[in-house]
């Protein structure tokens, strides 16, 4: 019974790692376990065998998703939603609100999307600067050289924005960054 429970908790831990703590996948497994616990079985072994059957199914499906890169596409579609929200909020601020808020939002969206692409491709970019991340992505062929060159001036703009150097850039530069980021997210997510 201990071994079965170890496998059960191991599966929960893997699901947490992949889908997050409150994911529907975990809820489903907990539900299966509760259902099995509520039914009378001849023995603990019979109950464990029933639970293991479900666990084997869940793990087989997980293996299939990993092998077919489906997890990455789930991750990508979630990321896209987040970035799209950021971009549209930034655009709202651009047309009727505060240029400072707008610029911070769009710079964060672009930098974060670069980090996410690196992360999805297995690059460790913790504590790396935006320029370093762009170089890493370029050298691995994850982004094209011409895109990397387009990103260079935006790295300088990002530094101005995040150093609250409000006087050193104008609205049109931020407008151009918004348009670029929108296309970039569309192409990479």
């Amino acid at each position: 019974h201990d071994e079965s429970m170890e496998i059960y908790y191991g599966t929960i831990s893997v699901l947490e790692n992949i889908y997050g703590k409150n994911s529907s996948h975990i809820k489903e497994l907990l539900l299966i376990n509760n259902k099995i616990l509520s039914i009378k079985y001849k023995s603990i072994e019979a109950r464990d065998a029933q639970l293991l059957t479900s666990i084997i199914g869940i793990l087989s499906n997980l293996k299939y998703e990993i092998e077919n890169d489906l997890l990455v596409s789930i991750e990508k579609s979630i990321s896209k939603e987040i970035f799209t929200d950021f971009i549209s909020f930034s655009k709202e601020q651009y047309s009727s609100g505060d240029l400072k808020i707008c610029s911070v939002l769009i710079c964060a969206a672009l930098e974060d999307s670069l980090k996410k692409i690196a992360d999805i491709n297995g690059l460790n970019v913790t504590k790396k600067s935006m320029a370093e991340i762009i170089n890493a992505l370029k050298s691995k062929g994850i982004i094209q050289k011409n895109i990397a060159s387009l990103l260079e001036p935006y790295t300088r703009l990002r530094n101005k924005v995040f150093h609250a150097d409000w006087e050193s850039f104008d609205k049109s530069e931020i407008g151009s960054l918004i348009a670029f980021t929108e296309e970039f997210v569309k192409d990479h997510f």
Partner: peptide, 20 residues
Amino acid sequence: SIKKRVVHLQENAKAQFEKL
């Protein structure tokens, strides 16, 4: 990697199921 963990768990689950 996560795939290794999944495969390992799956094998353990199958072996344990056979035992029961």
